[in-house]
């Protein structure tokens, strides 16, 4: 099992950025999803994060990351119905600084992948920035990948409708992935990883098999 704990800072800073012409199946990915206090971009805080690593198209079940965080603010009750994290769960969460430190090790050198990942990146950058670090891994939005693939393959009447409904369950279902509606950060990260796994093969088949080519239309 790959260790992401205990990486030295020296090693961390030495990690090279992935090359633009790197084939998609040669890269290390971390597919992630977060649960937040709200969707308010300026004020929301991180509640939990789930992430799973991939080596190319291979999903590493042994490299998972899941933490519930205590952001130190009151959690609005309404969110419980969505993400299932009760106020007491959040209170028992781990300190933000510690989780962020572990997370940075886990993400190191990886291309980040997520569905509408800009939302997750926004909150992570705020939290990490607050701790005096930056998060500048390249990031791929599977929703954008899906839209690009649709535009380049589908010619049906329903294209407009399909482009409107880009939520994860709908897109996952269109890729014939079976799943249960969970809204758990790790579960959703895993589902997104399975989606990205299939997309890698699709993109390669469409001669769009390098990181640079994908980032042109799917950068978050």
């Amino acid at each position: 099992m790959r260790r992401w704990l205990g990486f030295s800072r020296a090693k961390e800073s030495a990690a090279p950025a992935p090359a633009k012409n790197a084939p998609l199946d040669s890269l290390r990915y971390v597919v992630l999803d977060t649960e937040l206090t709200s969707l308010d971009r300026r004020r929301n805080r991180l509640l939990s994060i789930g992430a799973i690593a991939m080596d190319g198209a291979s999903i590493r079940l042994n490299e998972q990351f899941y933490r519930v965080v205590n952001p130190g603010v009151a959690v609005p009750g309404a969110g419980v119905l969505i993400h299932g994290l009760r106020p007491c769960d959040v209170e028992n969460g781990e300190p933000m600084a510690q989780v962020l430190e572990e997370l940075r090790s886990f993400l190191q050198g990886a291309v980040l992948v997520g569905h509408f990942v800009a939302i997750d990146l926004n909150v992570l950058r705020k939290e990490i920035g607050g701790a005096g670090h930056s998060l500048d891994n390249p990031a791929i939005d599977t929703a954008r990948v899906h839209r690009w693939i649709l535009r380049h393959t589908e010619h049906s009447e329903s294209l407009g409708h399909q482009l409107e409904t880009l939520d994860l369950p709908t897109v996952a279902a269109s890729y014939h992935l079976d799943f249960e509606q969970a809204h758990h950060a790790l579960d959703d990260a895993f589902l997104t990883a399975r989606l990205w796994q299939k997309m890698i093969h699709t993109l390669q088949a469409m001669n769009t098999g390098t990181l640079g080519a994908v980032l042109r239309f799917a950068r978050a």
Binding site: S58, I59, L61, R194, A205
Partner: peptide, 9 residues
């Protein structure tokens, strides 16, 4: 926890 999941078209 030692396994991987692979997809083969």
């Amino acid at each position: 926890n030692t396994m991987t999941l692979e997809y083969f078209p």
